[in-house]
Amino acid sequence: MFEARLLRSSILKKVLEAIKDLLTQATFDCDDNGIQLQAMDNSHVSLVSLTLRADGFDKYRCDRNISLGMNLSSMSKILKCAGDKDTVTMKAQDNADTVTFVFESPNQEKVSDYEMKLMNLDLEHLGIPETEYSCTIRLSSAEFARICRDLSQFGESIVISCTKEGVRFSASGDIGSANIALAQTASVDKEEEAVVIEMEEPVTLTFACQYLNYFTKATSLSPQVQLSMSADVPLVVEYRIPDIGHIRYYLAPKIDD
């Protein structure tokens, strides 16, 4: 028996929003520690890794490890039926071919359940090596979303260049070019608005705008985002989900032909 209950459905709704444009289907691997999801987009350019810890749920029970293969578009349709303040419970029997979502209104006067067919997904799993990154940049997630959106108007790629002075995002194309430079913040009133850079070595890498924009669908999950970069390895874009886990996106860089 698997059962996971969240007091607020909004976390799960936001998680789905953060992955459903990038992935069509994915396996939720559930065990004693919580729920893990790892999946590549169809083009195998990026990888999504989601962790929701058992202790972040209001109730969590997983008697036997279970993999729930879900169509994310169907799951998203079901989660849209939940009110933000509803409690959500995901349930599945051992060896089940369906998963059930139960939504309860705060006053318990409305209880809905939706059963969804599971899929047998035989997806490839990638081993992500422990990596010491040359640069990590922490900034407001809303600011990062805005930068990606603004620069997307100029070209298909964004160059991210990190030095100890700051981080610079650039794009160029038919209409011209754009550069946005962020300096490390000296002092701020709100911690989530700070720009914090840790740098061992300067790094400059080029990434596809389209994917960065997909990643920013996670903005509502966290006030801050962390970018980790080293030369010639995938960028990591991490959103920490308060009290329960994180979502990390890995994006392969573009390279000179």
Binding site: M40, S43, H44, V45, S46, L47, E124, H125, L126, G127, I128, P129, S157, T206, A208, V233, P234, Y250, L251, A252, P253, K254, I255, D256, D257
Partner: peptide, 13 residues
């Protein structure tokens, strides 16, 4: 520039 695949960095397990 050409887009690398994520599988060229992370091995399939």
């Amino acid at each position: 520039m050409s887009q690398k695949s994520i599988t060229s960095f992370f091995k399939i397990t």
